[in-house]
Simulated scan of single mutants.
Amino acid sequence: MQAGTTTLRGMCLLHWRVDPERLRSRLPASLSLDVHDGSAWLSLVACRVDSLRPRGAPRSLGWTYPEAHLRTYVTTGDGDLASYLFAVECGDPTVARVATATGFPYRRADAVIDREPDTFRFRSERTGPGAPPATVEVAYRPADRPPIVERDRWLVKRPVQFASPNGRLRRLTLRAGEYDLRPARATVETNDLFAAEGLPTPQSPPVARFCPSLTMAAGLPRPVR
């Protein structure tokens, strides 16, 4: 059942290799860490959420705000490819409150995404109570190289999303349009989100990708029994 739709714009996708053994203990027992070329991956995705709205509602009634989320990659016992959310930094307090009530790890944040002639700048700083402080600042722009590879498709083709911030696993089904992935150049100016979530902070530069826009529809979050 489709519950909501939106378009994600100006997406920056930053992917870091991580030793699988440093992530497995953070996952629920029913999920298996997915690896590529022997590595697990942590990803930070920043974008502007454009006109998030219930199915059938006009665009004028939607919410538009900056957002960033931190995720890794998993498979289910049925072999479904999925992502697992550790945190979502949300620039709209209403959306953050509603999403938190559904069992997903949304954090209220002061967030802004600006566009200069050829560069995007994203900044988010947590303001909501009950979570460690975290700030993310990234400058990014599309680039001509290197080419998109099979791993990039492996990272984004994830029609299922899981989260369990309160120890209760939730599942969300996503339906996304085609990713127009492009190489990108990115400078991570501040990122203490990994530490705030108790995750290993990668020391090497990320693989950076850019997607100008992506249509997205989501179902209703459901508990996993």
Rank of each mutant, 00 (worst) to 15 (best):
G77C: 08
T75W: 11
A101P: 07
G128R: 05
Y84K: 10
A101D: 00
R107A: 03
F86M: 06
V95P: 09
A109L: 00
T72L: 10
Y73G: 07
D114T: 15
P117A: 11
V74D: 12
R107W: 05
A96K: 11
D80H: 13
Y73H: 08
Y65K: 03
F86G: 09
T127L: 03
S124L: 05
T76R: 06
L81Y: 13
C90S: 02
A87P: 10
D114V: 13
L81N: 14
E89D: 06
G91T: 01
Y84M: 09
E116Q: 14
T94M: 12
T100K: 05
Y106L: 12
G62S: 05
D78T: 15
T94W: 14
P66S: 07
T72Y: 11
S83H: 10
V112L: 10
T127H: 13
L81P: 11
T102H: 04
A68S: 06
P66R: 06
S60A: 13
F120T: 10
S83G: 15
I113M: 14
V98P: 04
Y106E: 05
G79C: 07
G79I: 13
V88F: 06
T127P: 12
P105Y: 03
R123P: 01
A96F: 03
R123H: 06
A87Y: 08
F120L: 14
L85M: 13
I113F: 07
R121C: 13
T94E: 10
G103R: 14
C90P: 00
D110K: 01
I113N: 09
A82M: 13
D80F: 15
D80Y: 14
R97W: 12
C90N: 04
P117H: 09
T100N: 08
E125P: 01
L61Q: 09
P117M: 04
T94K: 12
R97C: 11
D114M: 14
G62H: 02
L81I: 04
F122I: 03
E116M: 14
V95A: 14
A109C: 14
P66A: 00
V98L: 15
W63Q: 00
T127Q: 09
L81S: 15
Y65H: 00
P117E: 13
A101H: 08
